[in-house]
Simulated assay, not measured.
Amino acid sequence: MNQPTGVRVFGAVNVTLLVLLCVVMLYPFVTVLAQSFSSSGAIEAGKVSLWPVGFNVDTYIAVTSNGTFWRNYGNTVLYTVVGTTIAMVLTTTYAYVLSKKHLKGRNALIGIAVFTMFFNGGLVPNYVLISSLGMKNTMWAIVLPNAVSVFNLLVMKSFFENLPKDIEEAAQIDGLGWYGIFGRIVLPLSKPVIATMVLFYSVQYWNDWFLAFLYLDKSELFPVTLFLRNLIAGASTSASEGAAAAETTTALVSSNIQAVTMVLTVIPILCVYPFVQRYFVSGIMLGSVKG
């Protein structure tokens, strides 16, 4: 079909802008990937851009040959899976409750949640609380403090508010209680926003190292992000085996270690994202229609 000139121009401009945007987004990642396989001298000389120069895998060998690295990698997977599961259970149930306008005290519950976005106890009180609860040097010090993101909570609340009320009323007429409606009706209809929140929480737990830095003293409990952080920083504490690895391999990997650590930590997220990306935009848009 012949299209008007204006439509063709508009389409060409859109395609050009999207291609340029893709190039801009991919360029940093491709550069980091190239640096991870380049020699230290080439990186220091600024010769690496989109293709490795002086192909080098010493850094990957130095990092991955350490048994602590794989143990910490397993810890990260465990923390991410457990933390995301707990976060999704709490966020979905709390958001569903808040979406019911007939709930007594609804505004107070929303206010309590929003209040935590602007105010918190602070670093020292949180440390004292975690220690007094006996969670220091345990997985729970990592997965529980950030179990509910208020932003994610509000997005899910808005999504639930936009679901057709007729479906829930029909389910009630058929004899389903609130738990049955939530589990058999609401959740299956909420796949886009659930997939989006799973991605958000997974990335949060996967990338987090600061809570582990505060609450974990045993290197066998470290997540891989803290191991690699110590490797980059050249930490020298006796409790950090990652620091010991850095001391023995600094001469080999000092220039491209940051590139290697970024590649190693981003690979799992890149593997998961294609399976949830089709829900990503729709989940955000549908959950943001109402405040």
Rank of each mutant, 00 (worst) to 15 (best):
I167P: 03
E168G: 09
L163G: 07
V143Y: 06
V150I: 09
L144D: 02
N146L: 08
K165P: 13
A147M: 00
P125H: 02
E161N: 08
N107L: 10
T92R: 02
T91C: 00
L123A: 10
G111T: 12
V124H: 01
L163E: 09
S149Y: 12
L163M: 05
T84D: 11
V143L: 12
K165E: 15
T91S: 15
V114M: 13
D166Q: 12
S149V: 03
V155Y: 10
A171R: 04
R106A: 07
L109P: 13
M117N: 07
T138Q: 13
E161T: 07
F115L: 05
S99A: 13
L153P: 02
P164N: 00
T93H: 11
L90H: 02
K157P: 07
F115P: 00
L163T: 04
K157I: 01
F115V: 01
M135P: 03
I142M: 09
T92F: 04
S158V: 04
A95Q: 15
N120L: 00
L154T: 03
I130L: 10
T84I: 09
L123M: 13
V97A: 15
P164Q: 08
I110A: 10
P125Q: 06
A171L: 11
F115W: 00
N126L: 11
I142Y: 02
P125D: 03
K100C: 09
A108E: 08
L109G: 03
N107W: 06
K165Y: 09
G134T: 04
E161K: 03
N137H: 07
